[in-house]
Design a protein around this nucleic acid. Sequence first.
RNA 1: GUCCCAGUAGCUCAGCUGGAUAGAGCAACAGCCUUCUAAGCUGUGGGUCGGGAGUUCGAAUCUCUCCUGGGACGCCA
Length: 560
Amino acid sequence: MERHIFALQISHLLGESFSREWVYAQIEIPKQETHGDLAFPCFSLAKHYRKNPKDIAEEISQSIKHDVFESVSATGGFVNVMLNKKFITSHTLNQLLSEPGEFGTHSFGKGKKVVLDLSAPNIAKPFSMGHLRSTVIGNAVANLAEKCGYEPVKINYIGDYGTQFGKLLAAYKRWGNPSLIKENPLHELKKIYVKFHQEAEKNPDLIEEGRQWFRKLEHQDEEAVELWTWFKDVSLIEFNKVYQLLGVSFDLTRGEAYYNDKMEATIELLKENNLLEHSEGAEVVRLDEEGLPPCLIRKSDGTTIYATRDLTAAIDRYQTYAFDESLYVVGHEQTLHFQQIVHVLKKLNFEWADRIQHISFGMMLKDGKKMSTRKGKTILLEEVLKEAIDKARENIEEKNPQLENKDETARQVGVGAVIFHDLKHDRRNDVEFSLDEMLTFEGHTAPYLQYSYVRAKSLLEKGGFTSSSAAAEIDDPEAWSLIKTIRAYPEKIKMAYETYDPSTIAKHLLDLARSFNQYYAKTNIVNSHNKNEKLTLVYAFSLVLKDGLQVLGIETPEKM
RNA sequence: GUCCCAGUAGCUCAGCUGGAUAGAGCAACAGCCUUCUAAGCUGUGGGUCGGGAGUUCGAAUCUCUCCUGGGACGCCA
């Protein structure tokens, strides 16, 4: 609001040479708080007016006047504005308290549907740290979509098919031990899968054995299907444990195998459009015009490949949901694959192909290198979560032994720490895996945020605050930074969705909590003369922080 | 070899639609619990923003080039 007013007044002064949009975009928030709350740089105006930027800033600042501005000054070519703290404060708090559920929401997604492809673990492979990224980023993006008015549909597209299962079946036939697998399915299956790849280096025949098993599977061989079903069932049980811990649910969980009998139709469609070509014994769609390598549709042994399945799934998905956006939350190593999928769909004249976006993210690295399941270098998410929860439990015993619900709180804190550690990094960047860092509960962490929330709740309880006693007028210079951070929250939600990057929210919540903790440190709240006003602010803070954590998929204990 | 991404404090990272003195967290050191949960707060030290060139009134931010690391590049997903 204040920014629009500022832009409007400036553009009014400048006349038609500079649009209001341009002025608005120029406005920035000064790094130094002492400079002001908003600033407009006049340097680019200097050439047009053939005047010193300082003089221009001076002139503009003379004419800026509005109730939301406390003072206007010109320093070094900038027009700096201090906001009317009282006005902005009551405006912000009234807005938040009148409809707490609406704060931070937007309506630009109203009536639109966004389908998200997330998590997508491979059965018979353990749920690794890599899948954590897709799961928590996808979940947070879905929450952001909802806050922006969209209807999100979360789809967990389980990797339950492909040559790798041929390998697994071959490995099982050689070294599998049914009773051990029943005891600890993912661990055992991972073991024989890793062993397969180790042995295959010495004995390349194994690879062919794996292919044969996959072919059997594709031809509905009874033994192959039976084993495959078994592996699938035990894997899903394990995955659900992880999802329950993480607090993530899906609107649809579907395996790739679902598309087995639908892929021929896709291949037919490609043929009808004269897109399919034979090449080196395989069938491909050429993408030379797009400057991309060909998209492989059918392998030389006649079996299908993931591109075929993804194309089929995409078509099916549009028919089912008629989505406005279709987001694939998948690691950036698959960038080329999704480019190919989109272009093949375009060649099929599906106008909705452009609504598909690959929301790529960086990999979890170990010592700067990719973690590979095949080499057994994966780190199991379940183990990490367990350690985090144990650590949280230790902290509780040490810091607050009287706490009720210790187990529940430890779970919320431990799991929150792991999720936040992932989400605070820019989506696109690789993340160096560090158990120590994940188990840190100080500084830029979820426990820090949760602790800040708990502190706020404790104040509200001690001060006997109820939402009906809220007072939106507060005159406290120390509170200004906190109020501004609360006020910025809705804009951050919008930005986070537009860039599909939850880290925007993660970082903002850290700012928010820091502002609160600084306020907490230097202000007496419960025993002050204007206790109710201050508690209103504390309450507002707690609402926003909790909302933000919810968006990230992190729970907030009331006490810890 | 080609294409894509990254290189900022000892470590992990923000900042990148160009703007005023480059910021946090961790680690180190020094303080603060007779004010509300110290999982907190305050302060100190720590930087050729990978190197070089260019565009600009102004570059960590844009362009080019080189170096380094990572990823992708048809029968894995």
